[in-house]
Structure formats: C-alpha cells, structure tokens
Write a protein that binds this DNA or RNA. Structure first.
Lengths: 228, 228
DNA sequence: GCGTTAAAATGAGTACACTCATCTTTTGAG
DNA sequence: CTCAAAAGATGAGTGTACTCATTTTAACGC
C-alpha cells in the first residue's frame, strides 16, 4: 500500500499546442477553491479565533461541502499550519531579495529576520501554539499532524543553516556546524515563546531581549570560548 | 464569580474524637476512585498510547460512568498532565532528601536532576508533547488546559529559582536573577526536546549533550562575560 | 458530439471528548 | 433514627472534527 503523494506539481503539457501553461479548468477550480478556503478560514480565525471556528463554518463561507475541506487539508490544524508555511516562505524570499539585509553583519541580520517574521505571524498569535509548537514533538506517528509540522521545521532549519554557513564563510563566527544550527533554532524558539508571553506595548520587551541576546551571543562567540 | 478552588487539602477534624485523621467515607471513596482512574489510564496509555485510548475505555476499566471521569479531570489532557505533576513533585522531593546531590557542585547537580526527571518521565514520552509542551503557549483563555499547564510550569520555575539562589549564595555563579531562571528553564526545555528526538541507545546522545552543555555553561559563566 | 475514466465534490454517517439534568449516597443536625 | 441538604455518580445527549460510499464534473480519445 503506497502512501498517497500530495501537493505534487504536474508539468504534463502534452496536449495543448501553443500555450506554455495549460492550467485547465480542473486545476483552476482547485486553486480557486483552495484560495476560497484559506480566505474564509483566515477571516473566521480573525473574527472568532481558531478554537471557536468550526470546520463547518469555514466550509459554508467557502461555499463547499463539509467533506471537501478535508480533501484540501488533512486536519483543521493542517489548515492553520498553511499560514505559517506561507509566512516562513515569505520571510525566506524577503531575505534573499533584500541586499541590504543580506550584507549586514550577523546580529543585525538575525534581528531583522526575527522582527520581520514576528510582524507577519502576529495575526496568528492565538493558534501558533496549537499548531507550530508541535514541531517539538516529532515522534509518535499517532499524531497525524507531525509529518506536516516536521516539514515546516525542516525548512526553517535549512534556512538557518544557510545563514550560518554564510556567516562562517565570512568568518563572522567560528565553524559551528550542525550544532550551531540546532542552537540557533532553539534560540529562535526561545524568542517566539517569550514573544507569546509578552504583553508590553508593541512587544518591545521581546525586541529588547532579542537585541541583548544577540549582543551577548556575539560577545561569547568572539571570545572564542567555544571548545568543549 | 470566584474561580472554583481545587485539590485543596481539607484538615477539618472537628467531629471524630480520637482519630487524628477523619477520612470519612466520602473522601475515601473519592480517593479510591481517583486512584482507579489514574491506574486505568496509565495502563491503557501504556498499552495503546494516549491518542488511541478513549475516555470511555478508561471509565470502563475504572468501573465508573463516562461522565464521572470529568468530575475528576477537566479534560483528557488534564488527566495526562497529572502524571507530569506527580513526577515533577517526585523530582523535587528527591532533590531535597538526597544530601549528596544537594551538596554537589551546580553542574553535577543539574545533570543528576535532569537524568532523574527524564528517567521518571520516560513512560509518558508519547504524549509529553500533547500536554506538557503547551506550557509555552499560556495566553488564549480559549485553550482550557492552559491554566493547569501554567501551574505546573510555575512550580518548575520556582524549583529552578531555588536551585539558582542556592548556587548564587555559594558563589558558584554570579547573580543572575530572574533572567537566569528563565534561561535555565529554557535550557531544560531544550534538553527535553532533544531527548524527544533522540533515538540513540539509552538516550546516550542526550546525556552527552547535557554534559557538554553544562560544561560549556560553567565555562562561560566562570569567565564572567556576563555584562550585557 | 459520445463514452469512458479519473479527479473531485458531496453530505450523511461515525467516533469521541465533553455536558448537564437527574438520580443516589453521604453527612450531620435535631 | 429521620430527614434535608450537599456531594457525587450517572449516562443519554451534544457538538464537532473527520470518513467514506456515492454522485458529479472535467478530460480526452474516437
């Protein structure tokens, strides 16, 4: 029994002659439906929150049958996860397209990235815990969400690795390897959890903490006290 | 509307004359029932896992009605949480009763504590994520578990504070204050998440990481590079 | 067009955590 | 002992995420 593949991009362009992209009515509909679901979900989550929004309501608002929703998203949490995927991708794109940020020294770079990410993720603050934090518990196949979350986490870690490798090449930091990636990812998680608890105006406490932590981190690394 | 208090220890010993403890049939039954529920839940979680065990099964095995379970535990997750409360308390008691550990230097002390905790928590590895890790998301009153989890986390942090204060008095570390507590708690969380992903024999990778991290931490602190 | 096949939509059905009005047991005062 | 009040147990009922057999729609060769 092969596991069903999903989200595969089809590039079969055999039949139609001149048009490079042959979207086809089917693919188009599917895209539209998915967009409608996401739009409806986002609005309802914004109005009533993640927990008080039912999948029935989302279906109704998206003008589809109740069951159809689950053809697009395996679970309600998987649907919510989609927003984080989008925002992470946005963050990655932003980084690779902004030359100023890419050229900046590592601490400034990280500060900018985290700030950007938190800004974008802010609307989903309520359910970030229900969804995203599960990345910390990847075992147990019983949890049906784990695979999706794991993918997201992996993409995040790969992005962090890129940034760290770049910094290593520029000799901004000593070679840290995989452990550095893990540690930085953990630091990021720490900031997010602090941010979740931060009730200060405009989350300024978080930004202050982040600033200080980056300064401290640079300091420790520059002292080279890293052999262990 | 005052929030209902729970789990309060009653010490009214007004009526019965000679016996110091007047348990009363009611309290006794309640205790027994609770114990039966916990026993049944633990067995079933062990056999089938947290997610595949239904509250109905637990009730049946504990020989109570389905609804009764929820007189004792607000949610299924709250029931699972009970095991972590117990183990944390056990850990605290263990620490305060073992003079050898209490006298040890801070890194050894922390190593012993974490090892002890992980040993005890190991049977619940499958659902530690479903329950315990929610402490990271304390906001959003919609999540009905948050209060209980928050209590547990608080107790943990208070324990960490005790340990740190002791170390500060003995001048094993510079004064770190509340930030130190937070950082150490985060470090602990890091170890737990690593442990959750660790498939090595006997979780030896985790223990190795813990050892190295403690050595590194001591080193950094001893260098005094802490002004920021 | 027409028929066939595969993709996708449908919504009644299911499973399960949790609620609540009602019934049962314990307590304690007289 | 009696009885009223309080604590607790009960299980049918409810809401909701999710499933699946069936129906509808799109694609495509003829």
């Amino acid at each position: 029994m092969p596991t069903p593949t999903k989200r595969q991009a089809r590039k079969k362009s055999t039949s139609s002659r001149s048009t490079k992209k042959a979207p086809g009515k089917r693919a188009k509909n599917k895209e539209q439906t998915k967009a409608r679901i996401l739009k409806a979900a986002l609005e309802l989550f914004g109005q009533k929150g993640f927990y008080k929004t039912t999948t029935k309501e989302i279906s109704r608002k998206a003008r589809i049958a109740e069951g159809t929703l689950f053809n697009y998203f395996k679970t309600k949490e998987d649907l919510a996860l989609y927003f984080f995927e989008t925002e992470l991708q946005n963050c990655i794109d932003w980084y690779y397209q902004d030359d100023y940020v890419r050229a900046a020294p590592l601490p400034e770079k990280l500060f900018g990235l985290v700030q950007h990410y938190l800004d974008r993720v802010e609307p989903y603050e309520e359910f970030i815990g229900a969804v995203y934090l599960r990345a910390l518990q990847p075992r147990s196949r019983l949890n049906p969400l784990s695979l999706e979350v794991q993918e997201l986490r992996l993409r995040e870690l790969m992005f962090i690795r890129d940034i760290l490798e770049e910094a290593e090449e520029r000799e901004e930091v000593p070679p840290l390897g995989e452990f550095g990636v893990y540690a930085l990812g953990l630091g990021f998680l720490a900031v997010v959890t602090y941010w979740l608890n931060d009730r200060s105006e405009g989350k300024e406490n978080t930004m202050a903490l982040l600033d200080r932590a980056l300064t401290l981190g640079s300091h420790v690394l520059r002292q080279g006290g890293w052999e262990w």
